[in-house]
Structure formats: structure tokens, C-alpha cells
Amino acid sequence: MYRILSPKISQKIMKSIFWISGLITIFILLIIIGYIILKGLPVINLEFLFSDPIDSGKAGGIFPMIISTAYVTLIALLVATPLGVGAAVYLAEYAGEGRLVAAIRFGAETLSSIPSIIFGLFGLAFFVIYLDMGWSVLSGGLTLALMALPTILAASEVSVESVNKSYSEGSLALGATKWQTVYQVIVPAAMPGITTGIILGMGRAIAEAAAILYTVGAALAIPISLMDPARPLPLHLYILATEGISLDNAYGTAAVLVIIILIITVVTNTLVDRYTKKMMGR
């Protein structure tokens, strides 16, 4: 067969293309994060982090927004994690193949491709109005839970599914029940993947503005009860920028959000790494 390129040369070319693709990806990431942080850093100081906004955010800090973010994200994860992991264990370990399973899987996939603004509208209609929760951290947190759920479910299911089948055989052969096997062998072995799923879900929830736009209100005060309205960081950022209140503070808010996400990601990755090493004896 006639070849334009020798295998050796085509190998080299393809390797360089992959290398360059990787490099560009990292470069884009660094540019975005670097840009936000550089633009935001000048306004970030202890006062900005720990004081209330003044004049709708033109001046002052973002302390209530940080608290609001923590609040809604926590609610979202507290609701979505047990549901998502539970459904994943059911699908991977108990369900087998059937119509119900196919329906659940289809539902989860569809859910994860629905635009976040639709979740916002649904949250408004269902939580805020129908269940009469009003604009509150609870309505916002539950709306975010719906968004995080399919992400947590999908990642957990893959991870539970990929646990070595020989572990469960070993456990069952010792006379353990199915539930003991799931709870004490399979889930611990799948924990790194499940944690990654929870962090991905959190990433979706923590940075979301559209889904909470109609559900959480836009209060500037620190939310105390579940029924208080709030203004998480992404929403604050959105309002500061679109209403032309303060672009500098918008960048500051964005930078704080990015840094929080970076810290959470790095810390969980380190913990997951350590857990995996301990578990696998490396």
C-alpha cells in the first residue's frame, strides 16, 4: 500500500497534536482563572470578605453572599447526595436490566442536559409558589439539589458499577448478605468516585446563577432561617455586572468564588488521593 507518511512520522505528528491539545486546554484554564483573579484581587481584603455590602454592593463587602452560597450549596448537597448515591447503588447493584431502570437512567440523563434557567423556572413554580416556600435559601437550595442530582447519580453509578466484582463474590461467599456487601465493601471501594461525583455536583450548584435567580430572592442581609431570602455569590456577581453597580466588585466577587471552588477541589482531591492510597496500599 502506498503511504504518504511513514508510520514513524505520523506517530510523531499525532503525538504532537495531542500534546498541543492538552497544552491549549491548560492554557485556556489558566488564562480564565488568572484573568479573573488578577482583576479581582485588588478589591479583595479582609474587609471585603467579612463585611456587609453598602449601597447595593457598590461598596462594602460580600460576607452575606459567602454565607448564602455556603447555605444553599449545603442544602443542595444534603438533599442530592443521599438521593443520588442511593439511586446509583440501586441502579448498579439491585436493579438489573428493566424498563424502570432504563426510565430512571433516561430521566437522569435528560435532567442533566436541561438548561439551568429552566430549573429556575420550575423552582419558582413548584417550591416558591406551589409549596409556598417563598424566595428563600430553602427554595434555592432545593432547586440546586435538582441540578446536582443527575451529576452525582451518574458519577456514582459508574463508580459503583466499576467496583471489582470479585470483592462482592468474596463477601457473599463469607455469608454476608447483599446489603452488608453493598454497605461495607462496595460503597467504600467506590468512595473515591462517589466523592468526585459529589464535588462535580457541588461545582454545578455553587456556581449557578440562573437556577437561583427566581428562587432565592436577592436579599442583601445574612440569611438566618431556611425561609430567609438570600443572595449567593453568582447571583450577586450577576446583579453587580448587569445592573452596572460596580464592575470592580463584580470581579472581586468572581475571584472569591473561583478561589473557593479551587480550594474545595484541591482539598477533596488530596483527601480522595490519600484515601485511595490507604485503601489500595500504594
Binding site: S166, Y167, E169, G170, S171, V185, A189
Partner: peptide, 8 residues
């Protein structure tokens, strides 16, 4: 079993 399968 055929392949050693200790739990992690």
C-alpha cells in the same frame, strides 16, 4: 477463589 480477592 482463583484470583486472590482480598477486600480493599
Amino acid at each position: 477463589f482463583q484470583k486472590p480477592n482480598p477486600f480493599p
